[in-house]
């Protein structure tokens, strides 16, 4: 069988006296959505930060397509095709949609030497248009600043980055926390489109609507340990909540 797109194995991470991760393992398959749940301080963010290259683990390994990778910087992680959509989206509101999509990795003119110093706006614009077409998303204008966009449109911009960079794994940190009902539905649609492109999605969220709308599998963390792995078609939101809080283990221990 094909190895999973992402496989983290026995991750440990300690911050001072806090054991943020204590032997956590999970895997994300291409074209599937894994929801990562847990109360505050359960270790979700730490895991995301390790996979996105912000933190390095004390012990354990991260493997892509079955081979272990060193992720010692965000640059390296994005080089491996791992994109993170942060809760605050990390967009520059003063820059245009296209500029945000390519921020830090701008396209330059190819060919002769002098031209190679300058931005290739045309190429960036075309790729940006293609990305929004793939997402089926509507943006008023690619050259208008992000400050003129709505919250849902900003989510689309952050997600379109993953399309532009042909990311294979996209991690979302609370993508719908600040959105209304309609925009949440739009973001769900965007994440499904991303999944349909064969991208692996790791979804960190508190929102049960997100979980049951999107997830193929659910992994629950508590105090740095993996408590349960659930199948959303076989459990109820109450089962998930009790796994998170630890009130009763209705779920199958993993």
């Amino acid at each position: 069988m094909q190895p999973p797109l992402l496989e983290v194995h026995d991750l440990h991470k300690r911050f001072g006296s806090v054991q943020a991760l204590d032997g956590v393992g999970l895997s994300v398959h291409a074209g599937s959505v894994l929801a990562l749940l847990g109360d505050n301080g359960a270790g979700k963010s730490t895991l995301v930060k390790i996979v996105s290259g912000v933190h390095s683990p004390d012990a354990g390994s991260v493997a892509l397509d079955g081979s272990t990778v060193e992720l010692s910087s965000p640059r390296q992680a994005s080089g491996c095709g791992i994109e993170t959509v942060y809760q605050d989206l990390a967009l520059c509101e003063n820059l245009s949609v296209t500029q945000n999509l390519f921020l830090g990795r701008e396209r330059r003119h190819s060919g002769n030497r002098l031209k190679g110093w300058f931005l290739d706006r045309h190429a960036m614009r075309q790729e940006a248009e293609r990305a929004f077409q793939v997402l089926g998303s509507r943006i008023p204008s690619l050259s208008s600043p992000v400050s003129s966009l709505s919250g849902g449109q900003r989510q689309a911009v952050a997600i379109a980055r993953a399309i532009v960079w042909r990311s294979r794994l996209v991690m979302f940190d609370e993508p719908t926390a600040a959105l209304g009902v309609e925009q949440t539905a739009n973001v769900h649609q965007l994440i499904r489109r991303l999944r349909d492109q064969g991208v692996g999605v790791l979804l960190v969220t508190h929102n049960m609507v997100d979980v049951f709308a999107l997830a193929d599998r659910i992994v629950v963390l508590r105090r740095g340990k993996r408590i349960a792995e659930l199948n959303p078609t076989e459990c109820t939101p109450d089962d998930v909540v009790s796994a998170i809080t630890g009130s009763s283990i209705a779920a199958r221990e993993s």
Binding site: Y86, A90, C92, E93, L103, G104, R105, E106
Partner: peptide, 16 residues
């Protein structure tokens, strides 16, 4: 572009 990114949102620029 990076200049204006730093001016607009330094944290986002750093993450990029």
């Amino acid at each position: 572009t990076h200049i204006f990114a730093v001016g607009g949102n330094a944290e986002a620029a750093r993450r990029a």
